[in-house]
Amino acid sequence: MSGASIGELIGWQVAALQSGQRIGNRTPRRDSYDENDRRAQIFRPIAGGNTAEALRWRDKLLQVAREYNVLHKEKGKREGPLGNNALWVLEVLLGFVDFGSGRCDPAIDTICAKAKLARATVVAAIERLKEHGFIDKVRRTRKTGRARSEGPQREQISNAYAFAVNLKDKVRQRFAQLVGGRKRAAEIQAKKKAEAEARAAALNAPTGRLGSMLLPNDPALAGALDRLGAHFEGDSASSVTREYPDQDLKGEKE
């Protein structure tokens, strides 16, 4: 490496130190991806972007996180595996989500200011949330457009966050149960309504077809009921056509 190229690489560092800047803040982390790299594209719309449903989705995720924290608290420990700080940081993070795109990328300092917690506390909380599957996190970088002598060609930018993508099986099932509760209730209600309408239609139908309508999966029994219904229909028809005299007519003949 030539002296000129070395000078290009360290010149900006010398200038930064002389101006009192911290070089570490400008050096990208190794486990980072460019913001346009597909591995950094973790944002997904929340509840299809529907605000009311997305707010419900957010509330249920917080509910599941609190339940998880209580259920997995080890005996003798003051807090569960997430802890109150992580639960609060999760709520704060969810407050930054754009429901339409799923975008959530506040800077750590922004999260700290909103949560009113120290930086180390927030960083630790985010790691716990990621460890237990409640969030995913990707460190990202961006091209600076600087010349080599002016500084690094990349800089660290805020992390990208996604939610509920790595939940443990039982936690995912519980979350799905809570989120899908309203939809499932509507489906059950619609099914009950359809069944009631079918029963009403069957009762209003000719009795000669009652068995076929009520027991479509049991042809033998349905046929027997149809024949029985047809028999009663015949009796009713005979009465209407006066094959069997009415009671008052019988009395007149006597």
Rank of each mutant, 00 (worst) to 15 (best):
M1I: 11
S5H: 02
S5Y: 06
I6M: 05
E8N: 01
G11D: 03
G11L: 05
W12D: 05
Q13P: 00
A16S: 14
Q21W: 07
G24T: 00
T27E: 08
P28G: 05
R29H: 07
D31C: 01
D31Y: 01
S32M: 06
S32N: 01
D34K: 09
A40K: 09
R44F: 09
A47N: 06
N50E: 12
D59N: 08
L62D: 07
Q63S: 08
R66Y: 14
H72I: 07
K73A: 11
K73C: 13
K75S: 13
G76Q: 13
K77I: 11
R78Y: 04
R78C: 01
E79V: 12
G80E: 10
N85H: 11
A86C: 09
W88R: 12
L90K: 09
L90M: 09
V92A: 11
L93I: 12
G95L: 07
F96S: 11
V97S: 00
V97W: 06
G100K: 06
G100S: 07
R103D: 14
P106E: 01
I108P: 03
D109W: 01
I111H: 06
C112R: 02
A118G: 13
R119F: 01
A120M: 03
V123S: 08
A124D: 04
A124S: 14
I126V: 10
E127A: 10
R128G: 02
L129M: 05
H132D: 10
I135M: 07
D136G: 13
V138I: 15
V138W: 13
R139P: 03
T141M: 12
K143A: 15
G145R: 02
R146F: 15
R148N: 06
S149L: 03
S149V: 08
G151H: 08
G151V: 00
R154H: 11
Q156L: 01
S158Q: 14
S158Y: 09
N159E: 14
A160Q: 00
A160N: 09
D169M: 08
D169E: 09
R174W: 12
Q177D: 15
Q177E: 15
Q177W: 15
G180H: 15
G181W: 10
R182E: 14
K191L: 15
A196S: 11
A196P: 05
A198T: 09
A198L: 13
A198H: 11
A200C: 10
L203I: 10
P206N: 07
S212N: 03
M213S: 00
L214E: 07
N217E: 15
G223L: 04
L225H: 08
L228V: 10
L228A: 11
H231S: 12
H231G: 12
F232A: 08
F232L: 12
G234P: 00
S236E: 04
A237E: 04
T241N: 02
P245E: 00
P245D: 00
Q247G: 01
G251N: 07
K253I: 08
K253D: 00
E254S: 03
